[in-house]
């Protein structure tokens, strides 16, 4: 570290404590969650993530917890919702950035941005009160009636609050974010490539194909970032998934994710010796996964941006 002048050095050092709060906070958060979770790790070990039990008891020896179901649920829900959101986001980003007339594209992208700022609790409320009953009546019941032999659709839908509903609402909520990422990437592709494509007579679809090819790393990054965001999402899932600890492949069945389990059990968990540490263990795992995904996603976007310059 060298500075051009002494005032520079003094300024840098005096700004440093504030700037390092971020780093200190991340470490402190991880350590705190780990410390709170220590009893669960010591008592249950690996079984915490390989067993599916939630047995509370006044007597600590009888308590037994395993987070397998919410862990599987988290990954299952996140994968389905990203799978739904990704193609939709790419087509919305392309349509609004390249194919629509300028006025219309402005309106669409502005509205998408605004929707990206709408709190997730509003998506959750909408999903729970409006979408869940509609999805059940027009989508789940017919699918179950005619395609019951496919394991995904094999169970009878009850209230409409299910893994499918949660995935759909999560997908809708992450579309604005992922769309803006893809659009950001598109805007960064130098204009000369776009001109070159049109000058050799590429059609719109071919143009789209070539640009997506160039965008590939960026799309991977957008997927990772979207996945991380969906994985940590609490409110939407807790409001729409129905909160049950059963493990099932069927998407019409209610389920749970780690955040929804925490949101539901945290208040009562304080009554038992090992319940609270178990929840902290779940959140620590979540934190580590989300941080890693975000870090990798952001590094990819940086690398890609440099390659475009």
């Amino acid at each position: 570290m060298f500075f051009k002048s002494k005032p520079d050095k003094i300024l840098f050092i005096s700004l440093l404590p504030f700037s390092l709060t971020s780093l200190a906070l991340i470490v402190y958060i991880a350590l705190t969650l780990g410390w709170e979770a220590r009893e669960a790790f010591l008592r249950f070990g690996v079984k915490l993530f390989t067993e599916n039990v939630w047995r509370v008891s006044e007597i600590p020896e009888y308590e037994s917890y395993g987070l397998l179901s919410p862990l599987v649920g988290s990954i299952y829900v996140s994968i389905t919702s990203v799978l739904i959101a990704l193609p939709l986001s790419i087509s919305l980003a392309f349509t609004s950035a390249e194919f629509l007339p300028k006025n219309l594209s402005k309106i669409v992208s502005h509205l998408t941005d605004v929707m990206g700022g709408v709190p997730t609790v509003i998506y959750g409320l909408w999903g729970s009160l409006f979408l869940a009953p509609v999805l059940r009546d027009v989508f789940m019941i017919p699918l179950n009636r005619y395609l019951w032999f496919i394991p995904l659709f094999s169970c009878t839908p009850l209230t409409g609050h299910s893994i499918l509903t949660a995935s759909v609402v999560l997908a809708v909520a992450s579309v604005p974010y992922m769309t803006s990422l893809v659009r950001e990437g598109l805007a960064m592709i130098p204009f000369k490539y776009k001109e070159a494509l049109y000058s050799i007579g590429a059609m719109r679809y071919e143009y789209f194909k070539v640009l997506t090819g160039m965008l590939k790393p960026y799309i991977v990054a957008a997927t990772l970032l979207g996945f991380s965001r969906v994985l940590g999402e609490t409110t939407i899932v807790a409001l729409t998934i129905g909160n049950s600890l059963k493990i099932s492949l069927c998407v019409f069945e209610p389920g749970s994710t780690i955040p929804s389990l925490i949101a539901n059990q945290f208040e009562s968990a304080g009554l038992y010796k090992y319940a609270l540490p178990t929840l902290f263990a779940g959140s620590l795992v979540l934190l580590l996964i989300c941080l890693t995904l975000t870090y990798v996603g952001i590094q990819i976007t940086y690398k890609w941006r440099e390659s475009m310059l």
């Binding site: 570290m1 840098f12 440093l16 700037s19 390092l20 971020s22 780093l23 906070l25 991340i26 402190y28 958060i29 705190t32 969650l33 709170e36 970032l225 991380s228 965001r229 994985l231 940590g232 999402e233 609490t234 955040p259 925490i262 949101a263 945290f266 929840l279 902290f280 959140s283 620590l284 979540l286 934190l287 989300c290 941080l291 995904l293 975000t294 870090y295 952001i298």
Partner: peptide, 25 residues
């Protein structure tokens, strides 16, 4: 500066922390 780069990366990754974990912290 090395420290600036670290701060930059940390802040950018910070948005990856689930807000529920922040609440528990």
């Amino acid at each position: 500066n090395v420290i600036s780069r670290v701060v930059e990366v940390v802040f950018r990754s910070f948005s990856g922390i689930p807000s529920l974990a922040v609440g528990m912290f």
